[in-house]
């Protein structure tokens, strides 16, 4: 007799899809045509959004979930998973994206926040969520709310990897520090990180996050991607870095290859040759506080 019970929407199934994306590159796309280029290049998933972060910076205004029509077009065009962004705390945008059937929702600081105190209750959804974090406490708060995947935030739309490095180093070094704590120190650590105690204790015991940790924000070259992988990322999100560059198809493919062979400098060197112009970068230190997207999220 074959079994017919199907348990959907559990933590293992939601986190499991992120496990399948490991070692891969997830690319921001705004059209079905870009999604096709990303898939051809070897992306493991695409992120559907209205405008890439570099354009959001340039144009300003309120940034919302992408048009469902666009999201559906992208879903019909590619066979790889399709993710889409909702505003922080905007649980109705999340409901809409779930109804469309997207494979993952990014509750993202790149869009204009809809709630300045609360994030979406992600346990209430069957579709899994990925959320950004700048440090371990923020990652654990998001996991506590039901996030099935974490990405370090970086500073989106800058083409500057410095913040991604800062956030990834912060998360991994705080995990290392926790794993050396005695049991009596864990409540103090939970207080310091403003994180759920049970998750703090779990990290102290296992020495790793219970979900996959990707990196995002400012990755523009194959070497950037390999750097983040060597720093401990499970995979890479690339936003403006691809479709704001001179030759998106070639650059996308090179970033995929550098992510797979991140610890083989000969291959990273080979795929970095002759890529044409990279996106124009922004020095993060020149950005006023109010324009720093990584500060969004609580």
């Amino acid at each position: 007799m074959s079994e017919t019970t199907r348990e959907t929407g559990g933590a293992r199934v939601k986190r499991g899809l992120a496990e399948m994306l490991k070692g891969g590159v997830i690319m921001d796309v705004t059209t079905a045509e870009q999604a096709k280029i990303a898939e051809e290049a070897g992306a493991v998933a695409v992120m559907a959004l209205e405008r890439v972060p570099a354009d959001i910076r340039a144009e300003g205004g309120v940034v919302r979930m992408a048009d469902p029509e666009k999201v559906s077009e992208i879903m019909e065009t590619v066979s790889i998973p399709v993710m889409a962004k909702c505003r922080i705390g905007h649980f109705v945008e999340a409901q809409v994206l779930e109804a469309l059937g997207v494979d993952y929702i990014d509750e993202s600081e790149v869009l204009t926040p809809a709630d300045e105190s609360n994030h979406v209750d992600k346990w209430a959804f069957n579709v899994p969520f990925v959320c950004g974090a700048t440090n371990l406490g923020e990652a654990l708060r998001r996991i506590g709310e039901g996030a099935a995947m974490i990405r370090s935030k970086g500073e989106a739309g800058t083409g500057n990897v410095v913040e991604a490095v800062r956030h990834m180093r912060s998360i991994t070094s705080e995990i290392r520090r926790l794993s050396t704590c005695g049991a009596e120190e864990l409540m103090g650590a939970a207080k310091e990180h403003r994180a759920p105690f049970d998750l703090v204790r779990e990290i102290a015991e296992t020495g790793t996050l219970p979900v996959v940790l990707f990196t995002a924000g400012g990755i523009a070259t194959p070497a950037d991607a390999a750097l983040m992988m060597q720093l401990g990322a499970d995979g890479v999100f690339v936003g403006s870095g691809i479709f704001k560059s001179g030759d998106p198809a070639t650059r996308a493919r090179s970033i995929v290859e550098a992510t797979t062979y991140f610890n083989e400098p000969e291959i990273v060197a080979k795929v970095s040759r002759g890529l044409g112009e990279a996106m124009v970068g922004i020095n993060v230190s020149d950005l006023p506080e109010s324009e720093r997207l990584a500060r969004r999220g609580w």
Binding site: R12, G16, E98, N126, V127
Partner: peptide, 16 residues
């Protein structure tokens, strides 16, 4: 490929 549907249709079960 993807024959049970999209991610919301992903599931776990016990198999003999």
């Amino acid at each position: 490929r993807n024959a049970y549907g999209r991610q919301v249709d992903s599931f776990e079960t016990d198999l003999d």
